[in-house]
Simulated assay, not measured.
Amino acid sequence: MLAAYANTVSSDDPLSALAVGELPDPEVPDGWTTVDVVASSLNRHDLWSLAGVGLPKDRTPMILGCDGVAIRRGHPHLIYPVIADASLPDETLDPGRTLLSELHPGTFAEKIAIPARNLLAAPEGWSAHEAACMPTAWLTAWRMLTTRGRLEPGGSVLVQGAGGGVATAAVRLAATMGARVYVTSRDEAKRERVAGLGATALPAGARLPERVDVVIETVGSATFDHSLKSARPGARIVVSGATAGHEAPVDLRRVFFLQLEIIGSTMGTRDELAELLIFCSEHDLRPVIDRVYPLREAKKALAHLADGDIFGKIVLDHS
């Protein structure tokens, strides 16, 4: 089968570790099933894997990809990428939790082995490209806003950064929930585009018209001080990434005086993904797609993701 995979790892040149070619069909653990993948989408996680973050060299070759859509019993199904103890109330808190492409081969292949419970029917009328964007970026944004951020109707949200998959998802979701949404970006073109999604777009570091209830923070040290200063008393600053540095200075005086909550968030549960799909279907809410590449051009797609000049999700077509 055709697959895009980490043939080795390289912190200096992650893309050099990528290979695209034929691999054997996946082995199927007890209780799992095999399905044909028709589309997948890229995440920063794929670049980190190629760099050796979370994927040691002795675990290569490893098929990349967390997100995807597969055909099961003739119908498209989303692939939920968290492999964990399903008996827990929140499988994302399982100490042994892992994502596809870490211990088990991922979605950048024509076939995948997956637990049957990790397949959820795609919404009616959605394309495979649209559905493939949901399980990581959109699920992450949903959990940040709801379970972790506890956004209430009529609330206010700041999303740091305007172009990535989580950021565009958070803007669309929060705006649909009726929140006042502010977004920061250094890129004027991205500010113009994100304004079209229902947000007030501002230059990076700009003073907001108001302090907000929830901050969606995926950038890290470059924006974290601004996140603190933009939060109202009792606000939640929800962190799911650190693309611009993980060692952020924190003014603890502001944290305790304003009783701020700094909350980590990673992925989401299968039940949260099901809730997200219902919400999007009810509101006819679709993901923003930046570009679609054929699976054979996975290296071009990952290079496009690495250069940072994106708006929305990058998708691989497996047909």
Rank of each mutant, 00 (worst) to 15 (best):
L252D: 14
A162H: 03
I310R: 05
V159A: 11
L100I: 13
T218M: 09
D30T: 14
L260M: 14
A175Q: 00
A231M: 09
L2D: 04
L139R: 07
R72E: 08
G205C: 09
E261S: 12
A3N: 01
V166H: 00
L15K: 09
E27F: 02
A70M: 01
L158K: 02
E210T: 12
G178P: 04
E275N: 12
L305N: 10
L119M: 11
A51L: 08
E110M: 04
E102G: 06
V82Q: 06
A244V: 05
L18C: 04
I114Y: 03
V37T: 08
R236D: 07
M134W: 08
P249S: 14
G65P: 05
P29R: 13
G205E: 04
G205V: 09
R193Y: 00
G196C: 10
R186S: 12
V250E: 00
W142Y: 12
T140S: 11
P24H: 06
E217W: 05
H246T: 11
W32S: 02
R150E: 15
A39C: 04
G198A: 08
H304F: 11
V288R: 08
V288M: 12
A242I: 07
L295E: 06
D13M: 06
G165K: 03
Y293S: 01
K299G: 08
R236L: 03
H129I: 07
L295D: 04
I114E: 06
R180E: 10
I263L: 15
P26C: 07
G154W: 10
R236V: 11
H104Q: 10
G164E: 03
E124S: 10
A116W: 13
P89M: 12
G220V: 05
T8P: 03
P29H: 11
A242R: 03
V315L: 03
L276V: 05
L93M: 12
L316S: 07
